[in-house]
Design a protein around this nucleic acid. Structure first.
Lengths: 144, 144
DNA sequence: CACAATTCAATTGCCCACAACTTATCCGCG
DNA sequence: CGCGGATAAGTTGTGGGCAATTGAATTGTG
């Protein structure tokens, strides 16, 4: 018996722990904006390009309508977003930013620095981590 | 303006995505055991050493009683675990494995290989990833 | 000894993740 | 044209995470 399985359990657990630790660092900052971390991710996508359909958002973030529909309703009730049924295709709901939603982008701009500061890694290590995680995620998705 | 903030958003999102992708790979295998991923983590800790108090489990896994109490009740109703109020300190609840809980360890032994196979990374890369994630998590926790 | 502060587990309430299902719309093909 | 399958979004139900609170037991201190 080698200890390989044990190492792998730790890689998986390490991912799970690191991810929760990262969102915990974001939490107090996002609290000031009144956003949760997944809501912040949705806003990031919209700040890049809007309007977007629910399905498009889901493809970017890897989330389904079961997660996004209520989340988007909350963003709408916060006044950051508007959901409009598409005229051309009545099945689609286009998510538009409101003026308040667009404004929030400014306040959010300083946020990512927090993680960089808290990470305790060099820029090279962060870059390599990003690269490895990207390949890992792609491989996991392709493994059925 | 550099694109550093953008890179960092991506590192954070990459962690979140990779973690979900990893648990998605585990899900079908764990389904056969009737466990969720966090339940599996609790069982892993118990297989190493039991009985354990709720707080001890929480420290190993970084979870609080709000998460663990209902999870442990589910494990108990599955017949894998028993919760016994400690005699010496009536505040504590000791989590014991049942015979069925101990048996499950055998079936679970082959699981970690799945992630290794699905990961598409070399053992060296996995090792380095594990190391980087460990340091990252520690730094994030120390950053208040 | 007595009382205040601490500790442990559980509970409540909110939000996310995801499977399974529903409803409405669209599109293609006979 | 009309119908059958595909597609978009929403709903329901289960199980995490996590903050805040509660209640019970223990510990520390005067």
């Amino acid at each position: 018996m080698t200890d390989a399985p044990r190492l792998n359990r730790q890689v998986c657990f390490a991912l799970y722990s690191a991810s929760r630790a990262a969102t915990a660092v974001y939490r107090p900052v996002l609290d000031e904006l009144g956003l949760t971390y997944p809501q912040y991710l949705v806003m990031l996508v919209l700040w890049e390009n809007e309007p977007r359909g629910v399905k498009e958002l889901g493809e970017e973030l890897g989330l389904d309508s079961g997660t996004l529909s209520p989340l988007l309703k909350r963003l709408e009730s916060l006044g950051l977003v508007e959901r409009r049924r598409s005229g051309e295709d009545e099945r689609r709901v286009a998510i538009h930013l409101t003026a308040a939603g667009r404004e929030l982008s400014g306040k959010a701009g300083a946020i990512p620095k927090r993680l960089a500061e808290a990470a305790g890694l060099t820029p090279e290590e962060l870059d390599q981590l990003h690269n490895t995680l990207g390949r890992l995620t792609a491989a996991l998705h392709n493994s059925h």
